[in-house]
Design a protein around this nucleic acid. Structure first.
Lengths: 111, 111
DNA sequence: TAAATGCGTAAGTGTTTGCTTACAAATATA
DNA sequence: TATATTTGTAAGCAAACACTTACGCATTTA
C-alpha cells in the first residue's frame, strides 16, 4: 500500500481535511461534522494522512486532536516548483507569482 | 471518472513521465523506452495526462509528440503554496527554500 | 456504577486503478 | 504493393480505494 504525500492529497476529501486543519487542530468528530460521509470514513482518511506524515494526533481524554504537519507539504512543493521556471518564463506570469507570494511570505528579499 | 491534476500526479509513473517531458517533448515509444511496463500501459497513462490537461499531443507522421503543459502545474502550486507561510515561519527553512529555488530559477532578482 | 461519548477497526461492497495481451488502424519503408 | 512501425483501444484481471454498517474499547458524565 503506497503511502506518500502525493497519493494522500489526490483525494478531495483529504485535501478538505487538510484545509480545515490548516486553520486549527480539530478532533475527529469536529472534522467529520464538515462532511456528509460517515464518521468511520473520516477516521480512515485521517489514518491515511497520519500514515504519510501529514498529520499527527494528540490524545486528550477521549478526544484525539489532529494537527496538520504543514512542512510535510514541502515534498509536494519541491517537486512542483522545480518546473516553475518553465511555465513562468514561457507565460511571463512571474510578476503575478511574485506578488502572490509576497502576500504569504513578505521577506522575499532577505537582507 | 475524476481527472484533475492532483489525481494525475499521484502516480509515480506519471510523475516520471512529466519529468521526462520537462526536458523535451517525446513521442510515445521514446517515453515507453524509459519504463519496464508495456507500451499500452504508457499509452493509458498518457491518456490520463492529456485528459487533465497536463500534456498535449502533436501528430507528426505516425508519431505523436507529447508536450508538457507546465503551467497546468500551477493548480498544484497554488494549492500547496497557500500553506507555505505556516511551515516556513515555524521551521525557519526559508533559507533552504530560497537557495533551492535559486538553482532552478536563477533570475529571482530580475533587474 | 450505568449510560453516553469519542473513537478505531473489522467485514463487506461497488468502483476505480494500473497493468496485461490481443487486435486494428494509420503511416512509412522495402 | 507488401511489410514494418507507431499508436490507440478493447477485454480481462488483480489490487487498491472509498465507502458502509456493526461492533468493541476507553473515557467521561449522570
Amino acid at each position: 500500500m503506497r503511502r506518500d504525500v502525493f497519493q494522500a492529497i489526490a483525494d478531495p476529501t483529504r485535501r478538505e481535511i487538510i484545509n480545515l486543519l490548516a486553520e486549527k487542530p480539530l478532533h475527529l468528530n469536529a472534522i467529520a461534522d464538515n462532511f456528509e460521509i460517515s464518521r468511520p470514513a473520516i477516521s480512515q482518511q485521517i489514518k491515511i494522512l497520519i500514515a504519510c506524515g501529514l498529520i499527527t494526533v494528540k490524545k486528550e481524554g477521549r478526544e484525539r486532536y489532529c494537527e496538520l504537519k504543514f512542512e510535510k507539504l514541502n515534498e509536494v512543493s519541491k517537486w512542483v516548483e522545480q518546473y516553475r521556471s518553465f511555465w513562468t518564463n514561457k507565460l511571463d506570469t512571474l510578476d503575478n507569482y511574485l506578488s502572490e507570494k509576497t502576500e504569504v511570505k513578505p521577506k522575499t528579499n532577505k537582507k
